[in-house]
């Protein structure tokens, strides 16, 4: 016999979502998360290259100025990637979730004096939409009656260095290691190191890429819950930092602040691996409604 068949849906008004998204966009552009700042501070203390150290000192100075004077940390205020975890007992009223989010992005970028970087058609007209819409929106249905929003303003310099490969399953950790190192070394200074390296392994092609994006939103210093993955993250981070690329690729011992790996079961024939790089301005902002 079914237990409780009367489910109480919790109503959230679209306007509330719009207001929250606008607020998050502005905050994300100006205030670097504490975990990333702590990561930059650790890097500054440990950096062996004097030039690399100088770069890190100036990046930390930039963090202070941005917060104090409400100037965006970086002029590339990104593609606005929004991850929405929608509780299955949430009922959105007063408009669609998608429209509400886009209205929030438009408002946040316009009223916050953030850069509009989105063009309407990717290979045709490429006319700027003037308010950074549309956002790239990922929705997941989760248990509960809350709406959890994560805003990730993702810069073009690092996003353009993304790589994906489906490897022969036998290549395993060695294959993944080589692919991650190659991706980072070839990218040089373009993605603005020190990086947060997101690695998505498993699932299908598009899911591995989504996992890599999710991985860059994990706080710097928070390790994988899975022991083998956690060890692999440590091993990879040591190797990435042994590349010598360094802060802004001027040479040095800090090329990445973290390597975050997310995994998912996959097909017997496949080993999908996605690498999504996040710059040192690893901006993200969360809220729950």
């Amino acid at each position: 016999m079914a237990s409780d068949t009367t489910t109480h849906l919790r109503e959230i008004h679209a306007d509330e979502i719009t207001a929250k998204v606008a607020e998050l966009c502005e905050q994300a552009a100006h205030v670097l998360p504490d975990d990333v700042v702590a990561g930059l501070q650790r890097a500054e203390r440990s950096e062996r290259s004097p030039l690399g150290k100088q770069v890190l000192i100036e990046l930390l100075e930039n963090v202070d100025i941005a917060k104090r004077d409400r100037i965006p940390l970086c002029q590339d205020t990104g593609t606005t990637v929004v991850m929405a975890e929608v509780g299955q007992d949430v009922h959105i009223v007063g408009g669609s979730l998608r429209d509400a989010i886009n209205a929030g992005v438009g408002r946040g970028y316009t009223e916050g004096y953030l850069r509009a970087s989105i063009v309407d058609h990717p290979f045709s007209t490429r006319v700027n939409t003037k308010n950074n819409t549309p956002a790239v929106i990922h929705t997941e249905i989760v248990p509960g009656d809350r709406l959890h929003l994560t805003i990730v303003p993702k810069g073009g310099g690092c996003e353009n260095m993304t790589k994906f490969q489906i490897m022969l399953p036998g290549r395993g950790k060695d294959g993944i290691t080589e692919f991650v190192l190659q991706t980072i070394e070839e990218s040089g200074g373009n993605p603005c190191p020190p990086l947060v390296v997101g690695v998505g392994v498993g699932g299908s092609a598009e899911y591995a890429m989504f996992l890599a994006k999710k991985a860059i939103t994990r706080p710097v210093g928070e390790e994988s819950a899975d022991e083998e993955t956690r060890q692999f993250e440590h091993e990879l981070l040591a190797k990435v930092n042994a590349l010598g690329v360094g802060p802004q690729a001027v040479g040095g011992s800090n090329t990445a602040l973290a390597v975050n790996i997310e995994t998912y079961p996959t097909h017997i024939t496949s080993l999908p691996v996605a690498v999504n790089l996040q710059c040192h301005s690893a901006r993200s902002k969360h809220a729950e409604l």
């Binding site: 030039l51 080589e178 042994a242 040479g251």
Partner: peptide
Amino acid sequence: LLLEGKEQYRDQATLGAYQSV
């Protein structure tokens, strides 16, 4: 600068079998 800097701070012992690109 970028090629020279990388060369200087590269730690091949940690990188093991990985060859530079």
